[in-house]
């Protein structure tokens, strides 16, 4: 009895795989055609607060030391970097505060010197940038800034960008 049943099953159940294979090939074609590997990209993470008015920083003065001054603006210790651009969008002149620096590598050295001082009052950097400066050139400046370490040991990630008018000259 059981032997007869088994024989019946073997001959009766035959799946037609061709239809399933067709469907599987269609799925495969879809995935092959839509496959676009994501490029490996790097990034520089920043905190970009909107720029605030720059307060004059007095040497060694800490925020809140002056009791007469209740303005929150005065508590901001900001280092200003200016990047003027050529008409072609390259860096023409770089300056920290009022003093010019020779180039991006010189900027790195100057920033290190300024920020490595334990009494350095700066905790934020405003970058004033010529409106024509290309993103590639801007990233060189941002790269230098984000490499710096503040006196409290934290990495400098807090930057603000300000656009210089197109006709501004160094």
């Amino acid at each position: 009895m059981s032997r007869r049943k088994k024989k019946h099953n073997d001959s009766g159940v035959e799946l037609n795989l061709a239809a399933m294979l067709d469907m599987a090939f269609q799925l495969l074609a879809f995935f092959i055609m839509t496959f676009k590997p994501a490029p490996i990209e790097g990034q520089i993470n920043l905190k970009l607060p909107p720029p605030k008015p720059v307060a004059g920083v007095k040497g060694g003065e800490q925020a809140g030391d002056d009791d007469k001054n209740k303005s929150a603006v005065e508590a901001i210790n900001t280092l200003v970097i200016s990047a003027f651009s050529t008409p072609g969008g390259r860096i023409q002149t770089l300056a920290i505060g009022e003093g010019n620096v020779a180039g991006v590598s010189a900027l790195d050295g100057r920033l290190k010197a300024v920020l490595s001082d334990a009494n350095s009052p700066f905790d934020q950097v405003i970058v004033q940038i010529g409106s024509k400066l290309r993103y590639e050139e801007l990233m060189k400046i941002v790269d230098v800034c984000t490499k710096q370490t503040l006196p409290n040991g934290e990495k400098l990630t807090k930057l603000s960008f300000v656009e210089l008018p197109a006709d501004t000259q160094p």
Binding site: G89, K132, E163
Partner: peptide, 9 residues
């Protein structure tokens, strides 16, 4: 990389 800062800003 050629985007002017004015437009990106």
């Amino acid at each position: 990389k050629d985007t002017p800062f004015g437009l990106l800003n």
